[in-house]
Design a protein around this nucleic acid. Structure first.
Lengths: 254, 254
DNA sequence: CGGGACTTTGAGCTTTCTCAACGATGGTGG
DNA sequence: CCACCATCGTTGAGAAAGCTCAAAGTCCCG
């Protein structure tokens, strides 16, 4: 169910209900991303223009080139955002998890597609009404600017990776940044001991994210295994045995 | 003077004066970028926290990792924005021209460096005061969000280029997007006839932007010349003889 | 006119890709 | 419940795109 081929599927979205402020309290993304910018009371205004939707693994819910009618906030699961060329070549520009905000667009059209990697739950906002809410809560727009700025920083790092790093550096960089994303101790505590990571995406996803082929991703993993830096319990479960030595392979910046 | 080697130079900034609203009227960037979001009267508030600075070709004016004290608006010339690895490998993430806004940062530090390609004039804003102006003019913050969103779209396109396009596709893509940027007729009128482009950056800059080597950039240009699609009057002056055929080589999206 | 930096071209090499086969895994139907 | 099948992942061998190293050509300035 998890690794559905990413061939274009018809877009099917199942609105479940409008979250109430109380429901927002239960939301996995309540205190990250956009929603963290508001107090519980103010969140009601946001909830009023929101719908909860469920997307099953492998399904496309944003199609590049279509009219940008919605914003989305991920409340559960992981998403791949990507662009494609006419001949099918694909570049995944990001893996987005809980709390990530998707849907910023210029000239009214999405410049990217988005698909569920796992089963995904989203908070969906209608564009028009949400823009009105923004006018009322400048904190939201400020937050959105922060989000966009942060995305830009990550995008620049990815350009550096894609333009200038070797295969092993790319894979190592991915492992480290993915571990930092899942890391409850961003102070680096975990870097000294082993780290367990869940990789919900397929090797093809990884290849399309890192600008490589699946074979090269696989060979890089095998090399890291051979060198005793990582181990796999399952194809989608990796352990960083020597996080610092992996980090040393990322060709750190500056 | 134009092609100064891009080895790190000491940062030298020469504040010239604070622009007055009247001076803003003369500014090359008055009706593009950030400043276009304000009326002539409101622009006075912005001008109050601005200083005009001049950077000579080749000079660094933003250094990755340093404290982000300023925002910049380019009023003349071209700039390269880039990230570097410890061993000197460099990825140019963008060429910025008149009207472009530079300086968005998270966690108070620049995540990139910026250097003048040509002699450059900038409008420099102190971070603190500018944020106060933002609070007063939400239109500015909105505009900034638009800018950031647009940057993100371009960044995603660049990731697609870096991760998935061939050398000739990268060079063609660059030529087309550079022509669209300089194109006074964005409706495509110019695509049918020849287009003259000025390329202020060096081949090394192009290589570091496209994730190639200078040799490969040069060979790609030579191939396009051989095929009769482009011609050079000078190393920095290219003519697209068959813009549509060049566009056909970019592996257009979707 | 000469020197230095940049660009172009050539030849050989390396990394990564392509093509192919084999192995593992998970879901399905008998 | 197990066997089968489709899909995904890994490994190997050869091919190719782009890189490295080298040398010659061009241009700008002093």
């Amino acid at each position: 169910m998890r690794d559905v081929p990413f061939a274009r599927r018809p877009i099917t979205i199942n609105p479940v209900n409008s979250p109430t402020p109380g429901q927002c309290g239960d939301c996995g993304a309540r205190h990250i991303g956009l929603c963290d910018a508001l107090t519980d009371e103010d969140l009601g205004f946001l909830a009023r223009v929101a719908q909860r939707v469920v997307i099953s693994a492998g399904k496309t819910f944003i199609d590049e080139g279509t009219t940008a009618n919605h914003f989305y906030d991920i409340t559960q699961g992981d998403v791949r955002v990507f662009k494609s060329l006419a001949d099918g070549r694909r570049q995944i520009t990001g893996f987005m998890g809980v709390g990530h905000f998707i849907g910023l667009a210029v000239s009214g059209q999405y410049a990217f597609s988005a698909e569920a990697i796992t089963d995904v739950k989203l908070c969906r906002f209608d564009r028009g009404p949400l823009l009105e809410v923004f006018a009322e809560f400048p904190a939201l727009e400020r937050k959105l600017l922060d989000v966009a700025t942060h995305e830009m920083v990550i995008a620049q790092e990815q350009m550096l990776l894609l333009g200038r790093k070797t295969a092993i550096e790319r894979v190592s960089s991915f492992l480290i940044s993915w571990s930092e994303r899942s890391d409850p101790y961003p102070d680096g505590t975990s870097k000294t001991s082993t780290v367990n990571l869940s990789l919900p995406m397929s090797r093809t996803d990884l290849a399309d994210y890192l600008g490589l082929t699946t074979e090269t991703v696989s060979r890089s993993f095998s090399q890291l295994k051979r060198d005793g830096l990582i181990s796999f319990t399952d194809v989608h479960e990796v352990t960083l045995l020597k996080p610092q030595r992996v980090a040393a392979l990322t060709a750190g910046e500056q």
